[in-house]
Design a protein around this nucleic acid. Structure first.
Length: 578
RNA sequence: GGUCCCGUGGUGAAGUCUGGAGUUCACGCUGGCCUGUCAAGCCAGAGGUCGCGGGUUCAAAUCCCGUCGGGACCGCCA
C-alpha cells in the first residue's frame, strides 16, 4: 500500500512515483481544479497537489499516489523539511473519513488537558505527543543498551505480591481462589531484586512499573516506571557509576552532547547550602549561615538555634506588597516570620526590624551575605531544619528558572541520615527503607543510642539520591546483608522479631544461606523523560495518564463492578460513608 | 484531610471586581468564490442550559451559599 513515509521524501526522490499514507493535516483549496493537501504521518508532512479536493476534510485518512517533483522556486516552503518538493498530479484514495475533531491538532493553541486526555488517540497525533513518546522510547532503548553493555540481566518480577503495611499505600487485588485474601501491586520490586542477589544474578535490572496509592501531583501518577537495578559485591560508588552512565546516555540522546560527570554532595551540605535534599543547582542564591553574628543579640526573634539568610542581587526594588506575600508564604511553610533588609543605592539600610539589631550585627550580616547597594536580604531564624527548609523554598520561589532553561544539572546527594526523626513513641523514623546499610563509622552510634536516642539522628546511611534540576529522579542504597545488623535496625525501629519474621521473613530466611553484599538504585523514567524534553508535568510523557483525582477521562476508570463479580471474589460493599 | 486557581458556542480567550438584552475577538465548522498556497485569501452562515443547584435582586455569566469537574501546592509518597 505504502512506498514511502511523508517526512522522508526529499529532492533525491524527484521523478519517482510514490504512494504515501496518512492523515490530512491541512487542505488549501484554490478553486475547483487546484488544491493543496498536507498529508501527515509519524515522520512529517508532505504537500500533495490535487484537483477536486472538496470532499477531503481534515484528519481524513488517505493513500496518495503521484510523482515527486520540484516546487517552483518561489513557492518553496523553508519552514518544512520537505518544503522543496511536492507530490504532483496526485490521485487520492480515501481510506477513512473523519468527523471534525473536538480540538485542533495544530498545537497552536493550548487545549484543556482533560479534553486532550479524553481524546488521547487524537492528542497522540500532535507533534508534541509524537515527539515526547518517541523521546521516551529512545531513552528506554538507551538505558537498556547501557545496562546490557554492562552485563546486567533483565529479570521480570511479579505484579501480584504480598501487601506490606510499610511505605506507600498499596493497591490491592482480591484473590478469587483464596477468598478474603489479597495481593498487592508492587510499589517497587525492592525485595525481589535483593532475592535476585541472593540468587546469584549478580547484576539485575528491570524497567519496572510501580504502583502507589497516594495523592497525585505534577510529578506523580499512581503508576510510574522505574529503571530498577541491583548489583552484588559493589559499594555505592560503583552503583552510582553505572546509573550515571545510563542517564548520561539518555541525556546525550536528547541534547546531542555528553553531559559532564555528575558531581556529588553530602545531604548535610545540600541542606545547608540549598535548604533541600534535592537542590536545583541551575542557579545560585545559596543559603548563608548567620547564626554566629547574632549569638549575643538582643533581638528576641533572633534568639534561635539557627539563623540563615539569602541575598537577592538587585532585589532592593521589591515592593511592600510582594514582601508581605513572601512573608505569608514563609509562614505557610512553617516559619515564624520572614525578615528582610534592603541596602539602598547609597548604602543605607532599611528594614522594619533594623532598630532591633546592633550596628555590628547589621554590618556583619551585610558583609557575610555580600550584600551590595540595591540588594535585598531575607533572613529566617528557627530550628536548623525549619530555617533551611523555609529558605530553601524561598530560594526556589525567587530564583527557579523555567523547566526548559538552564540546561541539565544532575547531582548525586549522598550520606543521607539513616533516620529522619524520632516519633512520639521514641522510635526513630527511617529516612529510606529499613534495609539501608548505615555508614560503618557510625555503627557505634547505633550501639550508643540506648542512653540517648537523639544521637541516632547523626547516623549516616549509605543511601544516595539522584537529582536533576531540583527533581528527585530516584534513590538507592547499599543494603544490609547481615542478619545481625538487620535485626539491630528492626529493634531500633520497634519492629520485633515476630513482626519482622511475618513481614520480611522470606528475605531474612534468604539471608541465612549466603547473602552477597549488594547495593542498588531505582530512578523514575517518567520524570527523567519529562525534564529532558522540557515538560513540567509527567502526564505529557505518558500515553494514557490519569487526572489528579485518579480517574481516567478516556476509559472512565475506576468503575463499579457488578454483584456477580463481587460474589465470586467474596466481597461485599459497605454503604457509602456519611 | 487542608490551601489556592480555573470552568463562557467545537477550541482558545475577553467580559465577572463595578449586576442591565448571550455581547466581543481568534481558530475551527458549513456553503459560495478563487489555478501556487503553506496559520492561504475573500464573502455569507450556523453554532450557547455562561459546569450544576439554590439564594439575593425589578434584573445574575457577573453578587452570596452549596455542589461537581479540572489544575497547582501542603499533608501523604518507607
Amino acid at each position: 500500500m505504502r512506498t514511502d513515509y511523508c517526512g522522508r521524501l526529499s529532492v533525491d526522490d524527484i521523478g519517482r512515483t510514490v504512494t504515501v499514507c496518512g492523515w490530512v493535516s491541512k487542505r488549501r483549496e484554490h478553486g475547483e481544479f487546484l488544491a493543496f493537501v498536507d498529508l501527515r504521518d509519524r515522520t512529517g508532512i508532505i504537500q500533495c497537489v490535487v484537483d477536486h479536493a472538496h470532499d477531503i476534510r481534515s484528519e481524513y485518512v488517505l493513500a496518495v499516489t503521484g510523482t515527486i517533483r520540484e516546487r517552483p522556486p518561489e513557492t518553496i516552503n523553508h519552514e518544512l523539511p520537505t518544503g522543496a518538493i511536492e507530490i504532483g498530479e496526485a490521485t487520492v484514495e480515501i481510506l477513512s473519513e473523519a468527523e471534525p475533531t473536538p480540538f485542533q491538532l495544530s498545537g497552536r493553541v493550548e487545549v484543556d488537558e482533560t479534553i486532550r486526555i479524553r481524546h488521547r488517540y487524537l492528542d497522540l497525533r500532535t507533534d508534541r505527543m509524537q515527539r515526547n513518546l518517541r523521546s521516551r522510547a529512545l531513552i528506554n532503548a538507551a538505558i537498556r543498551r547501557a545496562m546490557d553493555a554492562q552485563e546486567f540481566v533483565e529479570v521480570e518480577t511479579p505484579m501480584l505480591i504480598a501487601s506490606t503495611p510499610e511505605g506507600a499505600r498499596d493497591f490491592v487485588v482480591p484473590s478469587r481462589l483464596n477468598p478474603g485474601n489479597f495481593y498487592a501491586l508492587p510499589q517497587s520490586p525492592q525485595l525481589f531484586k535483593q532475592l535476585c542477589m541472593v540468587g546469584g544474578i549478580d547484576r539485575y535490572y528491570q524497567i519496572a512499573r510501580c504502583m502507589r496509592d497516594e495523592d497525585l501531583r505534577a510529578d506523580r501518577q499512581f503508576e510510574f516506571t522505574q529503571l530498577d537495578m541491583e548489583m552484588s559485591f559493589v559499594d555505592g560508588q560503583e552503583v552510582r557509576a553505572v546509573v550515571s552512565q545510563a542517564v548520561a546516555e539518555a541525556a546525550e540522546l536528547i541534547t546531542g552532547h555528553k553531559p559532564s560527570a555528575i558531581p556529588e554532595m553530602s545531604w548535610l551540605e545540600a541542606m545547608n547550602r540549598y535548604g533541600s535534599d534535592k537542590p536545583d543547582i541551575r542557579f545560585d542564591l545559596e543559603l548563608v549561615d548567620l547564626t554566629e553574628i547574632f549569638s549575643e543579640t538582643d533581638f528576641n526573634a533572633f534568639k534561635a538555634p539557627c539563623i540563615k539568610g539569602i541575598r537577592v542581587e538587585g532585589g532592593g526594588e521589591t515592593g511592600r506588597n510582594k514582601l508581605d506575600q513572601l512573608t505569608d508564604k514563609a509562614k505557610t511553610w512553617g516559619a515564624k516570620g520572614l525578615v528582610w533588609i534592603k541596602v539602598g543605592e547609597s548604602g543605607e539600610v532599611s528594614s522594619p526590624v533594623a532598630k532591633f539589631m546592633s550596628d555590628a550585627e547589621i554590618a556583619g550580616l551585610i558583609d557575610k551575605l555580600g550584600a551590595g547597594n540595591g540588594d535585598i536580604c531575607y533572613l529566617v531564624a528557627d530550628e536548623w531544619r525549619r530555617a533551611v527548609h523555609v529558605l530553601g523554598l524561598l530560594r526556589l520561589e525567587l530564583g527557579r528558572p523555567p523547566v526548559n532553561e538552564g540546561g541539565f544539572h544532575f547531582l548525586w546527594v549522598i550520606d543521607f541520615p539513616l533516620f529522619e526523626d524520632i516519633d512520639d513513641a521514641g522510635n526513630p523514623v527511617p529516612a529510606h527503607h529499613p534495609f539501608t546499610m548505615p555508614h560503618l563509622e557510625d555503627l557505634e552510634l547505633l550501639a550508643a543510642s540506648g542512653e540517648d536516642p537523639s544521637v541516632l539522628l547523626d547516623v549516616r546511611s549509605q543511601a544516595y539520591d539522584l537529582v536533576l534540576n531540583g527533581w528527585e529522579l530516584g534513590s538507592g542504597s547499599v543494603r544490609i546483608h547481615s542478619r545481625d545488623i538487620q535485626q539491630q535496625i528492626f529493634d531500633l525501629l520497634g519492629i520485633g522479631e515476630e513482626e519482622s519474621q511475618r513481614k520480611f521473613g522470606f528475605l531474612m530466611d534468604a539471608f541465612r544461606y549466603g547473602a552477597p553484599p549488594h547495593a542498588g538504585f531505582a530512578f523514575g523514567i517518567d520524570r527523567l523523560v519529562a525534564l529532558l524534553v522540557g515538560e513540567e508535568n509527567i502526564r505529557e510523557v505518558i500515553a494514557f495518564p490519569k487526572s489528579q483525582s485518579g480517574t481516567d477521562p478516556l476509559t472512565e476508570a475506576p468503575t463499579p463492578i457488578d454483584s456477580a463479580q463481587l460474589d465470586e471474589l467474596g466481597l461485599r460493599l459497605l454503604p457509602p460513608a456519611n
